[in-house]
Every structure is written in C-alpha cells, then in structure tokens.
Design a protein around this nucleic acid. Structure first.
Length: 651
DNA sequence: TAGAGTTGTCATCTT
DNA sequence: TTAAGATGACAACTC
C-alpha cells in the first residue's frame, strides 16, 4: 500500500506540475477515485530517442526508484528519467517493445488466458479492435470520469518488464488488474486476450532468447495457474517442450524405424542365444532388439526344418534364457517372445530327436523353400547366401563349377556368395568327426567375442552329416549341390583334410586355435591356410558389423535431421504467431490511445487528438501524454527548450 | 544392360 | 610383437 500511495502522490504532483506547464486541463477529481493516477502530460521536446534497456529498468519493478541508495533524489531522478523516457518515446517503432512491458501484467484474465494463443484469436481481436475504435469515436462524449480513472490507472500500473520474465507482479496486483480489465471489458470495448499475446515483447527478442538458450524466467512462482499455462504455451517453454516432445517422438519414431532397419539388415539374433562359454556371455555385440525378436518370433511359426535344426541344437536353457535376457528391455515384445520361445521349445523337443535325425526328417528339409532358408540366413549376422544359392540360383552352377575345378584356385575379389554355413553339413564335418579330437558340439559353443551369426549356426552341424550327405538339399546332382554349398575356405579345408570346418576355425578361441596350429602337426601350408581362413572369417564378420554400424549411424543422422526440421518448422510457426500477436497489440495500443485522448481535454476544453499528442509508457508503468512536435515547426522546438529546462528543473 | 545394393575380401590402421 | 577389431576400397554377384 505504501507503494500505491507513493505512486499516487508522485503521480498527482507530477500531474499537476506538468499540467501547469503545458496548460492542459484534466479532471483531476476523477483520478482521486482511483488508487493510481500518475497520468502526466508532457509538452517537452521529443526530438531525441533514447533506447531504454530493460535491464536498466529492473530497479523500478517494485516501485523502487532508480537510485535506491539515494532516497532523497528519488523524486528528482524519477521525474528526470520520466521526462527522458518521454522524449525517448518519439519513435513509433519502439513502442511495441515498451508496450509489452506493461501489457504483460495487465492481461491476466482467467477466461481469456485459457484460450490458446492462436492466430484466430489474434485476428478476432484485431478485428474487434478496429470495429470498437470506430464506434468509440462516436461515443466519446459519453465517457465517464470513473472510466477515465480506471483507464488511466490501468495504463499507469507499474509493472515488471518481460525481460525478466514478467514474474514479479504480485498476485494482489494481478487480481486487481483482472478486475480492472474485466471492468473495462464490461463496457464492451476490451478483449484482454490480445494483451496476453503481448507477452512476447518482440519477435526479435523472442528469437534472441531462443537462440541464446537463456532460460526464461519461470512464471510458476508468481503467476496464477492460468498465466502459467499461458506462458508455457505461448512463450518460453516451447524450447523445452520441443526437446521433450521431440525426444519422445524421436524415441518412438526411432523404434518404429528401427523395425524396418532391423528387417532390412537383420542379424542373427539366434546367435545371441548361444550360451556363454565359461559363464561369460559375450555374444551380445548384435544387440537383441525388439524388432529382431519380433521378426524371428513371427517367423518361428513358419520355421523351416532348417531353422528347426538350428534351434534344436541349442540347449533349452540357453534358448529360453537368451531370449528372455534379450527381451528384457523390450517388454512390449514379450508376447511375441513368448510365442517364439514356445515355438522354439517345441522345436527343441523336435530337436532332441535331431541327433537321430533320419532321412524322413531330411526329406522335410528337401521340401523347404529355398527362399525360406534364405531368410533364415539373412537373419543371421553372416551372410549365408543360401537365398542366392538355392537350387534355383542361376549362379549356383557357376560357383559349383569354379569351386569344383580347383580348391586352390585363387579367387580374387568377392566370393561372398559361397555359403559357409550351408557348408557346415558337409564333408568337412565328416572329416571333423573323423579327425578332430575336439568335441565339435563343444567347439561350436565357444563363445568368441565377435558376434557371428554364422558361427553359431554351426548348430546345424549337429546334423548327422552322413544323412545330409545322403540327402542333399536338392534332388538335382548331389555332388554339385554339395560343392556349391561349400564356401571357398570350406572347400579348401576339405581339400587339405583339415580336421576343422572353416566355421570352427573362425569361431574357436585364439588359444584353442593356437593349440590346433601347434599341436596337430600340421604342415606350414595348412597352418597358413588355417590362419587365412580365420582371418577372412573374422574380417567378414567385422565388415558386416561395420556396415551395420554405418547404417545405424546413417539412420540416426536421418532421424536427427527430421527432428531438427520439425523443430525448425515449429519455431517458424511460433515466430509467425508472435508477429501476429505483436500486430494485435499495436492495434490495441492505438485503440487505447484514442480512448484516452477522447477523455482528455486541453485548456480550452477541447479533446486531445492523437494527431497532436501521443501516449508513452514509462518503465514504472506511468503513462505520459506527450505533445507531438512536428519537424516543420522549427520555432516551436526552439521555444520548447526553455520548457524542457523548466521541466527538468522543476522537480 | 546399366545401375543400385549386397557381400566377401584385402589392405591398413588402431587398440 | 601379435591378435583382433574397424574401416575404406574393390570386385563379384544379384536383382
């Protein structure tokens, strides 16, 4: 209340002084009804424009003077500052910025603030203002003194500037302002919603805040919930809301896109089920992803016997646990996983008999659509090329012929269409059973660090190789089918009578591999060959992983680009919205100016016109009526100098 | 048949 | 020093 009295007293004194200086008569009694009446009429020169920075005005928000340490000079500096600002308010371009300073705090109308600050409301407000102004001019003489006091008090209400987030206004003042706005609105001349849109001081300032990333003051501490909501919707929060919403969006989109990505570049999740060796599970480089499991679980219902055999070779616990672990982070896929697990368990039940698989089951294998096998191969991290090397593959004969021609033929370039995994049920396995003292079923589960899909596929090596040899995948020439199913290294392995398959050589731990090299009495050629096989196999997987990572990176960057584009478009919309709000505020300011001028009278009792006078808002919320000095009237400006000095000295 | 995509391999570098 | 992994480049192949 002391602040109110202070402003009242100061305003009244200034008002009286200024009136005496310019000779404008104002019905002072009307202002005595209101608590605030710092309406001043300044007739001083306004040639110079001085920009008033927001930060320099912060000391005035709570009614403090410019120099709180010098109370005795408050009045002097306040008046001087007031006059300076009045002079500085000559540029109409600048007024919107100052306008926002006080309009921000007079907006709060609960009913209106709940409206989203959309362009529709702005346009409506603008239209309403225009229509009101026309009708109001005709009713100038009917205005009441009480209304004048309210209007003047409303305009003179001291308030914070938006540069600090407009959070300093007390709730009491907010409520008071609400009442005034409502009272003013009851006259059918106001739509506070337009003022709420002035929360943005200017588009540039808003962009500056956005670009600088400076957190806008949270309105939560001082504003009613409706104001908070409005602010969060309209002003600063978009920055954070963008991020959060975009983050959510990105996550969801990333997941959805991940599905397609995984489908496009499926890797062998089957191998994630490989039980750990020595209790350490390291085959997790190919992360078990939801879409991958979904894909496999979906396919599990249509699993071919080939897949069945592959899964059958997996220990039950390993399959279940591996699947569970892999799906731990994909709760939404658990249903599919359960289905997949049950399918796999069922298949495992079948797989238990696979060790004694006979020609009857292999006959089923013959009925497998090669494309299905190809899909299974594609699901593995390692390309098995079975899809391209099916019985119907046109290149099969070529590979077969080339590979059968010479095992030591130097095949430069890509030989990626040789199937190593398909070669597993091959002669090398037979040789392995004959030669290798190492338990193959154990070596298959060697948990090598590199995530190979292909080398867990050796579960297929649990096939009775004899049966496979007896029952090739194709009913065509059996020998050619076998050969073309073998990779180059596998064929070489067979040729060299190496007691290991290429898959084993690659998948076995380095210690074991060294033991093989040293303890087998292999010839130097065989040793070099085994090293080459191992190197190529590992490099093949490394290349696959590398490509997968590259694709992931590309996908991630694409998602980032999409997210940033969406954010940019949203910011552009916000800027448009802000520009509209600013325009509406300007129209409203014009309307209010006309309203005030229609209530003011000069010394001869004539109403003030906007052509001769202009309203300027000060930092402390006071409104000053300033006489417009036209450049053409040079003598007037010369004569105005003494007035200015007088005004400056008067206080 | 040209071109894009896939895959294996090699060479090289880094860890 | 060696093994393993990562990655660019190339070639073969498929579609």
């Amino acid at each position: 209340m002391q602040n109110v009295k202070k402003y009242f007293t100061e305003g009244l004194i200034q008002f009286t002084i200024l009136l005496s200086l310019i000779g404008v008569r104002v019905d002072v009694d009307s202002y005595l009804n209101g608590p605030y009446s710092p309406l001043e009429i300044n007739d001083g020169p306004s040639s110079a424009y001085i920009q008033t920075p927001f930060h320099s005005l912060r000391d005035n928000w709570d009614g403090y003077s410019v120099h709180p340490k010098c109370p005795e000079l408050d009045y002097f500096f306040a008046c001087r500052r007031l006059l300076d600002e009045v002079r500085a308010l000559g540029s109409p371009i600048r007024f919107p910025t100052q306008l926002s300073a006080w309009l921000v705090h007079q907006v709060p109308d609960s009913s209106e603030l709940r409206e989203p600050p959309n362009s529709t409301s702005n346009s409506n407000v603008s239209a309403g203002l225009l229509s009101e102004s026309t009708g109001e001019e005709a009713n100038d003489t009917e205005l009441l003194a009480v209304d004048e006091s309210h209007t003047a008090a409303q305009l003179s209400e001291p308030g914070p500037f938006p540069s600090s987030g407009a959070c300093e206004i007390p709730n009491q003042e907010v409520e008071e302002l609400k009442g005034r706005i409502q009272e003013y609105g009851d006259e059918g001349r106001e739509e506070p919603v337009s003022l709420t849109q002035l929360a943005l001081s200017s588009t540039l300032e808003y962009e500056g805040l956005l670009s600088s990333g400076a957190p806008l003051s949270s309105p939560e501490d001082h504003h009613p919930p409706d104001i908070d909501q409005h602010w969060s919707q309209f002003l600063s929060l978009p920055i954070y809301e963008f991020d959060l919403s975009d983050l959510d969006t990105d996550i969801s989109s990333a997941i959805s896109q991940d599905v397609s990505l995984r489908d496009a570049m499926v890797t062998g999740s089957v191998y994630d089920m490989i039980p750990p060796r020595g209790g350490v599970r390291t085959l997790v480089a190919r992360q078990p992803r939801g879409p991958l499991f979904r894909l496999e679980s979906t396919n599990s219902s249509n699993l071919s016997p080939g897949m069945t055999t592959g899964l059958a070779a997996l220990p039950n616990a390993a399959v279940v646990n591996g699947t569970r672990n892999g799906s731990s982070s994909h709760g939404a896929l658990e249903g599919c996983l359960d289905e997949a697990v049950f399918d796999q368990i069922n298949l495992l039940g079948l797989g238990g008999c696979l060790e004694t698989m006979d020609a009857q089951l292999l006959g089923i294998l013959q009925g497998i659509d090669p494309r299905v096998l190809g899909d299974l191969d594609s699901d593995s991290g390692l390309s098995l090329e079975s899809s391209s090397r099916g019985p119907d593959s046109p290149s099969a004969s070529e590979v077969s012929s080339s590979s059968s021609s010479s095992f030591f033929e130097d095949e430069g370039g890509a030989t990626g269409y040789s199937s190593e995994v398909d070669s597993l049920p091959s002669k090398s396995i037979a040789n392995y059973d004959t030669w290798s003292p190492v338990d193959f079923s154990e070596s298959v589960w060697h948990d090598h660090s590199y995530s190979s899909a292909a080398f867990s596929q050796p579960s297929a090596t649990t096939f009775p190789h004899k049966a496979i040899k007896e029952e090739p995948f194709s009913d065509e020439d059996g020998e050619d089918d076998e050969d073309r199913e073998l990779s180059r290294d596998e064929l070489r392995t067979r040729a060299l009578h190496v007691p290991f398959s290429a898959a084993e050589i690659v998948s076995m731990p380095v210690e074991e591999f060294l033991e093989v090299l040293e303890g087998r009495g292999l010839s130097p050629a065989q040793v070099a060959f085994l090293r080459d096989i191992r190197r190529r196999g590992k490099n093949k997987l490394a290349a696959q992983n590398c490509r997968k990572r590259k694709l992931d990176a590309i996908t991630g960057l694409q998602e980032e680009v999409e997210r940033l584009q969406a954010q940019r478009s949203r910011l552009l919309r916000e800027r448009q919205h802000t520009a509209k709000a600013l325009g509406a505020a300007g129209q409203r300011m014009e309307h209010l100016s006309r309203d005030i001028f229609s209530r003011l009278r000069d010394g001869s009792g004539r109403p003030l016109t906007s052509e001769r006078y202009t309203l300027q808002c000060e930092a402390n919320g006071r409104v000053v009526v300033q006489h417009i000095r036209r450049p053409s009237v040079a003598t007037t400006s010369a004569g105005g100098k003494p007035d200015k000095r007088k005004k400056e000295k008067k206080p």
